[in-house]
């Protein structure tokens, strides 16, 4: 990680939500909010504005007037040297997650767990990893387990006993928090197991994830 803090732009049509997110992010020394926009079009204008300066990461709400977060993400991804992007959304639906990946975002954070996941997701995005939203994770894992059951060859090495336990709980739709409680381990450890499982399944960045999801029929191409 560089010594320079990550320069973040917040895009959400609710001023109060932007303020709340800003307060959470600015508690972290490695994150700095440098700009705020009320919709996608304004975000694009600000990215072009030389006064704002370079932006490393854009945090986008999905539902916004004028230009939605997904449309804005597609536009931003077309720029030269696009900043990394994270979607912040109310929708608990893995279709939005995969659609966000297709639009070029690195991750998807649910607003109801933003207080816990947002900072980790920002850091994952800056490392070039995909931050996988729990609902999508369980869809991926269920598909993986289905393939094993049908005797198909699956990528990746064998999981440890602990990872198997976590995998099973993920498949049942438990959140990271519930898994942590069930296995009496810390939330951080659960996150690490999740990351390891993804890595072992050969799905670490967003492109691999999107390809897999399309092939598995979790989303339509």
């Amino acid at each position: 990680m560089t010594t320079q803090p990550t320069r973040v732009m917040l895009v959400d049509d609710h001023t109060l939500v932007r303020r709340g997110v800003r307060l959470i992010l600015e508690q972290e020394p490695d994150l700095e909010v440098v700009a705020e926009a009320g919709d996608g079009a304004e975000a694009l204008a600000l990215l072009r504005d030389p006064e704002v300066g370079p932006v490393d990461l854009v945090v986008l709400d999905i539902a916004m007037p004028r230009m939605t977060g997904l449309q804005a993400a597609r536009e931003i991804a077309r720029r030269q040297d696009p900043p990394r992007m994270l979607m912040l959304s109310m929708h608990d639906n893995e279709q939005y997650f995969f659609e966000s990946l297709k639009a070029g975002a690195s991750g998807y954070v649910l607003k109801s767990v933003a207080d816990e996941d947002l900072v980790a997701a920002c850091r994952a995005a800056m490392r070039g990893e995909a931050f996988v939203y729990p609902g999508a994770m369980s869809a991926l894992v269920r598909d993986y387990l289905d393939r094993i059951r049908r005797g198909e060859r699956v990528p990746g090495s064998v999981l440890t006993a602990r990872e198997d336990e976590v995998l099973k709980l993920i498949a049942e739709g438990s959140s990271s928090k519930e898994i942590a409680r069930a296995l009496t381990i810390s939330l951080k450890t659960v996150e690490r197991h999740r990351a390891n499982i993804l890595a072992k399944l050969g799905m670490r960045d967003r492109t691999q994830l999107t390809r897999y999801a399309i092939r598995a029929g979790l989303i339509e191409p």
Partner: peptide
């Protein structure tokens, strides 16, 4: 529900998180 209640609750959630620290 999404735009009003949901966003307001998000603000509450983030505010409480901020207070917690």
């Amino acid at each position: 529900l999404h735009d009003e209640v949901g966003q307001t609750l998000t603000v509450v959630l983030l505010g409480l998180k901020q207070l917690e620290s």
